[in-house]
Structure formats: structure tokens, C-alpha cells
Design a protein around this nucleic acid. Sequence first.
DNA 1: TCGTGTCGCGCC
DNA 2: AAAGGGCGCGACACGA
Length: 557
Amino acid sequence: MFLVLSKPHSVDIAGEVIIAVLADTGELISCDSVANQTELVGLIQSKDLSDFRLVWDDTNRWYPKLLAEGIWIPRCVDLRLSDQILRHSEFTRDHYFALRGEDPWLKFDESEPSEGLFELEPSDSELDSAAEFAFQSKVIENSERSQQIKLLLAAESAGALVAAEMKFCGLPLRPDLHEQMLVQALGPRPRFGERPKTLAKLLSTIQTLLNVNDLNPDSPAELIKGLKANGLNVSSTRSWELKRLDHPVVAPLLEYKKLSRLMSANGWHWLDANVADGRFRPDYVVGGVVTGRWASRGGGGAMQLPKKVRGSVVADSGWQLVVADAAQLEPRILAALSGDSAMAKAGKSRDMYEGLVATGVVESRDRAKVAMLAAMYGATTGDSAKLMPLLARAFPKAISLVESAARTGERGGVVTTRLGRTSPAPDAERIFPEDGFSESTDSGARSPRTGSFARSWGRFTRNFVVQGTAAEFSLCWMALLRQKLHELAFDSRLENGPHLVFFMHDELVIHSPISVAPKVGELAVLAAIEAGKLLFPCTSVEFPLDVSIVDRYSDAS
DNA sequence: TCGTGTCGCGCC
DNA sequence: AAAGGGCGCGACACGA
């Protein structure tokens, strides 16, 4: 048994019913009774079931096959992703372990079933989805924060659908344009094992300037040695450190490193391996980062598609790319999370950093940005750290939220996002090392001295609440936009209407027929507003988008 | 020759 | 402009 159909119900946060987001217990339709794929297609596509939520063990195992059949799933519960959240969340983990018997996930096999869509004989690795769904529902019902958890699981599961759909549709990428860019930057494609012309030239310049014949700049150790032999004292070969040197070799060296990076990360090999039929199809890993952000696997790093490569990302003829970016998402999340009205007010400005300047806390946009990053990441040195007292005075609630998250982490505690994703517990022995860092005092309390591991863990928990809640916002945003796009192109197959093709933390790209592209942009804005209301029903913080409608990704502002 | 660890860099 | 958080990856370095 692997499929269960269950009615959706509404979630009620702060007295406001927003949208139907997660299945309640109720009528379950077992798909065991469905004999074959055709029958399932009929079942899912029939009008009555379009409002239902599909419950399955693992979206990755089933959805790609359904998509290939032209089937779109309105919503689902991904039991695997839900389990990961429930067993760690502060809101649910006590009930989870109290109610959980034998762990059914220990023997669960994530690999895609080989034979068709159905296997008449469930194997040992199959999960009893109905039983697991019942278990999870019970854990959720027992939670005092069931509304948040339900929303989180719905959003995470919707993310799984989006990820599968984005891989299925692929990001349009023109290999001819990409090669053209490579040739322009590096020279013609070299034979295997050889350096392209531009790199070879730069290499010999570098070797001449440093007076070393066989220096390989790709080796940090060799490079440091070569620089030191020329009286250039560096402790690393990071480009920002090299920039500080006053020597003719710096310019060609930095150029070499830049191009060498382009070649190895997004060169011809990357193109061959990751782009087929004019589409880049990375694997997204939903919940792949502890904070709840997505990660990517293989595919040459989908979550870091360099600016330079975006010139090759071009909409199909008759289509456009709608690029939507949540402006200053993390500072806005912090403002909403902490209920800091002064910071919310600064966020009334379309550009929140300019808004901070307008309040008079800092004198320039750059300073505002650096100060916010310092607050969210935990800067301890440099100019950015000096801005902290200014911020703390202007935005006491926001700053005390991140400071308290940091202190919790330093003490070895865990922190939790808005919807309930909880940070992992640190290794207690590293927080409280036995070699004298923090000996017990007479009262038995820990010494106030904090070791470097504890401080760095504090920076992690400080960032966790903001980054993790921002990730929740993005999941809700995508989930809502996905529904709106479906309504816009109700009858067509996913790939024939406007569809999501790329996601990067706070930015979404939709491949859209030209005729509806402006409408898609509006829907993206609307979805972001609704996502803000879902997470923070009572906040005055706004979540505006920068939307560009372009042919080429690199033309987006 | 393999796996593992570190560096450096790209993205947010 | 600063070097604070999160990732994945390729290349190199090193030990088995």
C-alpha cells in the first residue's frame, strides 16, 4: 500500500482561516484497489478528486512517473519528509517518540520501484502508508502547535511536488549560446587534458612573473610557495587576500582563477553532463539543508547557477521567463518573526535597506546591508560588528531575538523556526569541553566562559531561525504560486502552460507563454503576499517582489 | 588507485 | 564592502 487519498481541510491560524492546506483524517481511499496505471490516471483526473490530497511514502518514487504520464497532482503528503520534521521538531518530538513503535523508516528503500507504477506484492521495504499517515496525524493532533506543524508539512510536501515538476520541465538553456560564451572567455574547446588557449596564456604569464617554470596555480600549496619565493607573504590564496598584494602577477592570477573556475564548474564537461534537449535538469533535494533550505545533488550545483551562465538561459520561442525575487527576504523575515514594529516600518520601503537609511540608524545603503548581515550571521569583528549597538538601539526586538537564539546555541540548546523546524542538537562534549574551558562552578552551573565551538554554534542557531523561517516562506510562496499557475492553465499539461522552472532560496523563475507572462508576474506577487499572511497573519511586514519579464535570465534586474 | 579531508569559490 | 550563517562541487593533497 502506498497511496492514500484524503480530504483537505482548512488551517486556522490566529483566528483567520487562510487556505486549505493539509489533510485531516477522514475518508481514506486506498489505491490498493486500483489495478493499474490507467485506472489511477482516471481516478486522479476525475473532477471530484481534484480537491483531494494524495498521501504517499516518497514523492521522488512516484511523481516523476505520473508527470511523464501527463498527470498533475494538486497536493500531497510526503510521509518521508514529514517524518523527518516530526521526529526533530520541538513541537512534536516528545509525542513522536512516545507513540512510535518500531521505526518503519529504518528498512525503507528510497530507490524508485523498478516495475511499472504498481507492484502487486509489496516488498519488505514498502511502507504501510495508511498506518504511517495515521501515526503522523496522531502526533500532530497531540501537538500544542498543530496548526504551524500542519502548515509546515503541507509546505514541505508541496515543495517536493514543485521540485519534481521543475526537474521534469527543466530550465531552458541554449547549449549553443553557452558554448559561444565559453569560447569567448576561454578559447576553443581544448582536447582532453589540455588547457584552453586563454588559460594557457595566463599560465605562462604567471610563471614568467613569478619566475617559476612548473607552477600550477590550481594548487594552493604550490601557489603559496611561489608567491612567498617572490617576497609576497600570504597565508592563503583566497582571491580577496591576493587582491591586497601589490605585484604585477595579481591581475593575471585573479583572471586565471576566475576562468579556471568557469571551466571546471560550468565548462564543456558540465554542459555535456547536465544539459540535454535544451534543458538543465538538476536534482533538487527538498529539506536537504538542516535549516529547511533545498540543496541540490549532481546536476552541477543548481543552487549556485553563476551569473555568467544565466546568459545561456533563454525562453523558448513564444515564451518568456518571469523572474521573481523576494526583496531582502531575510531581514523582512526577522522583522516579522520578532514583531519589531520599527523594523517593519523600515520595511514599508520597497528597498528595506533604504528604509533603514531613512530611519537614520545608518548613513548608507551599504552600511545598512552589512549591519543586517552582521545581525543575522553574528559578526564579531570588523566594521560590521561595530554597527550592532546601533541596530540594537533602533530595533531592540529584532536584535534581541537573534541574540537570544545565539545564546541558546552557545548553551547547547536548540532553536525552532516559525512553523516548527528545529535545529539539531550540538555534540555536548564540544560545547562543554572537559579540558578546562568551562568547568563547573561551586553552584554546579557552567562557567560563563564560552569556547570557540560554542560561539560558532551560537552563530549557527542565530542564523537558523532566520534562514529556516525564510525557507518556510519560500515553500509557501512556491506552493501557492503553483496552484495559481495551475488555475491559469487549467486544461493543459504542465509543460504547456506557465510552469516553475528554477528556484534559488528567494528567487523563482517561471517559464511562461508570452500572452500570460504579465499575469504570471502578478500571481507571483499575490502568492508572496499570501505566503506572508500564512506565516504571519497579524504582521505589518510586507514581502514585495522584484519581478522581471525577460527572454534571457541574465537580463533580469 | 582508492577514499577522505581541505581549500577555494560560486550562489543565497 | 566584509570576511559573520548555510550549502555543493571540483581540484588537490595525503594516507592506506
